[in-house]
């Protein structure tokens, strides 16, 4: 099975407030508030550039952040994407 491709709303669909260690995301389409830790906000921002699967998204994130080289990264990212999908913040187009 090919890796799922995800889509996120554009950034203006969310209102983001930083509180010490966590980020509050108010999602305008659902009216739901999500309380997330990094790297969820970064994933959403990178995905807003265009639809992507986990591998493509990882490349985008590596551009801006230094994760080092770790084979587990893509699996971890896939897990975060699945959580964001449950929350309704990303979906499969």
């Amino acid at each position: 099975m090919p890796a799922p491709v995800y889509r996120a709303d554009p950034e203006k669909a969310r209102r983001i407030v930083q509180l010490d260690s966590v980020t509050l995301i108010f999602h305008r389409a659902s009216g739901l508030t999500h309380i997330v830790a990094p790297p969820a906000p970064e994933i959403l921002a990178a995905l807003a550039e265009g639809d992507a699967d986990a591998a493509t998204l990882l490349d985008r994130l590596k551009r801006d952040f230094d994760f080092g080289e770790d084979e587990e990264l893509e699996a971890a990212l896939s897990a975060r994407l699945a959580e964001l999908e449950t929350a309704g913040l990303v979906w499969r187009p």
Partner: peptide, 16 residues
Amino acid sequence: EHQRRQALWEAEMARR
């Protein structure tokens, strides 16, 4: 307005 947003979101989640 709240009910409208909530209803449309439930429909969207069913669609997904």
